[in-house]
Nucleic acid binder design. Structure first.
Lengths: 221, 221, 221, 221
DNA sequence: AATGAATGAGGGTTCATTCAT
DNA sequence: CATGAATGAACCCTCATTCAT
């Protein structure tokens, strides 16, 4: 790559990473750059139509780059899923910490996070489903998803336990509620995936609120 | 085909058709046979690893057979999704008709149908997710799924409307409940997909019951 | 084939054969029917895009019919070429016999035959070139074409010999003229093939006349 | 690639490139190498029996190479025709420039070029006919051939115009002669194609001379 | 570290041929 | 004789991977 084309290349990437990625970007940066490109490709074309070449092109790099940094496509995809899961977890954790102070507020905030454009959007939702679609035949994917799921469930169940204790609710168990809430949010992603046009975020949000109110009338009124 | 391979072939087909079908299978039967084989392959290996050759082998037929009956792989997959969706709808309709007599019983029966081994099993669930994984990039898939979804939603909402009227429930709208229930059942499929071992069908069932009871305490007690 | 579809089929073929082809058309009739269909297909789609299935469809018959009557595609094509060559020869012979009375008139008539719409048209010309295109790799084609060519040449040379004797022309040999005339007519077919729109039949015809006049001024004035 | 197969590979390529070209061949060189291989294959096996695999093997390269450099077989063929046409045009132009000084000499030189072994040989002639055989069904081929034809015609007509003016010939028009000469040379190629053994280059040459002499007796005596 | 030409296995598809009906 | 479902080899093309530069 000569000096001129390097500059072109550099500019081309400005949009993607918001800061100058050097030719000798550190290993970690390059990996992330490729993961981000992978996400874009999967979101745009689906898992089945995402080739290593597409990813490289999306990243503005050369053919061989993926195998250089990830050894195999399989690896890239696994790392991509891990990245997506981590990102989700980070936002989840942050919401959990910042919302409050009570368990009820935290719970509601977490539910709403799942409906927030930062999480449920035309980029991320398809990626989740793309990976879920392969879960059955890829044990590694399953494991990563499972971990995320358990984490989510555990925290939801803790919050519910607190809320139930606070409200002395009977007739509902914390685990039941956690299961239902977890399922519901994932299910709403599906509705959004299937009919992104007609999907009404507010309606979904109020459906979630209604549900919480039904479970815990004293907390959500 | 020599004698040995004929017998192999015959046996291989026993499962699918329960009797030796040779060149006489009607066009419709052959198509169904191939669709069933496709479902098995997708469930076993995932969408991305299902080749036309695999499907043909699974059906005990030759390479060219798929293109002979479906013209293209795309077509086969679309027809497979349609088949799966129709099958679901049939069971759904049957449950709706046979359960009863009241709306509450019907609603509960429909929710439980989604958790029933006939619907939620290691074969069908992965197939649904395999197709959902491609929804973003395949408008046809989206449409078929959308239709199924709307149908489901509509009936659930009707039932909820009746129940709400019967019980004079306030604080919940029929559409809210329908959305939440639809989302929840789909979400439970995901939990089942991700952790088929630890997934507890009874727990899921009771979570669903708890939810219904929370919404409509007078009906589910 | 039931009675209704038979009638449909029968009608469909009326145009092609101008008389009722029975279901039990004699072997010879069927063969011709298929050959005619082959010619149409080659003229329309080219040799490379003409499949046995296309031919059968064009003839309004079933897949297997070609192999039934011709054993192989190769055979069908060879027979088609033979048919085309025979047809040409028949018209050539007829022209030779009917034109006259002198050699000069006969020669001119033969040249003009090659430019006549009955011979040089959008159906036949491409077929000739389609076969010539394969001549190098198909000895059988070569032989058939060669035979036709020699026949043509021989007769042309005879006529020229007569004309030269009549006119006591010097400076030209019969074989030279025959070679040139034969080449020219075939070459005009190429011009017609390549630019059927801008090709001017009259201009070609007068070019041929000019040529004859240059060779034999006393005969063509 | 082990040592033995490397040597094999090296030898195989000697003919084509006269020195070991490995992965370094420039894009343009590779394309030409493949085009040359294509020409050989078509000349040897005919258009219909020339597969991408054959071409790659002929070039001593791998299957995927053609699509890497030409994107599709269609493209390769079109470029091959273009190459052949360009090559012809170059030789034509060179002959036109170098022959002379008069128009008559130039004309004769051009006619003789078409009969020269450098142009009319067992490699090139079949290739021309292979492409002409597909002209009807491939508009792109038609266009390329048409362009070549018009170029040829135009120059021939110009030369004839000059000659006619010089010799004050009557009874012939420049366009008539150009058409006839063009047709004749192409037609001679056909004779050569059909009977390469018995085709007599000298006889063809003298037939051409006779023709010129008949048209323009004052110039060719 | 990065490139991109090259590979070759595997995919979807076409189609001449076979054969039970 | 005729059909058309079925076969399976061969095609073109894609793409993960390798490797000389």
């Amino acid at each position: 790559m000569n000096e001129y084309s390097f500059i072109v290349w550099q500019n081309r990437n400005m949009g993607a990473t918001a800061k100058s990625v050097r030719r000798t970007a550190s290993r970690k940066q390059r990996r992330q750059q490729l993961i981000v490109a992978t996400i874009k490709c999967i979101a745009r074309n689906g898992m089945g139509s995402t080739s290593i070449g597409d990813v490289a092109k999306e990243a503005g790099l050369s053919q061989g780059i993926v195998n250089l940094h990830f050894e195999s496509k399989d690896n890239l995809l696994t790392e991509t899923l891990r990245y997506v899961a981590d990102e989700y977890k980070t936002q989840f954790r942050k919401t959990l910490d910042e919302a409050g102070p009570g368990a009820a507020e935290k719970l509601q905030a977490l539910i709403e996070l799942d409906l927030h454009p930062a999480i449920m959007n035309r980029q991320k939702t398809p990626v989740w489903f793309a990976f879920w679609g392969e879960v059955k035949s890829r044990p590694t994917y399953r494991k990563i998803c499972d971990t995320r799921d358990r984490y989510y469930d555990e925290i939801l169940e803790d919050l519910c336990t607190t809320i139930i204790a606070e409200g002395k609710y009977r007739n509902v168990s914390a685990s039941s509620v956690a299961i239902a809430l977890n399922a519901m949010t994932n299910g709403l992603w599906l509705s959004y995936l299937i009919s992104p046009r007609s999907f009404d975020r507010d309606q979904a949000s109020s459906a979630a609120s209604d549900l919480l109110r039904s479970y815990f009338p004293k907390h959500y009124s």
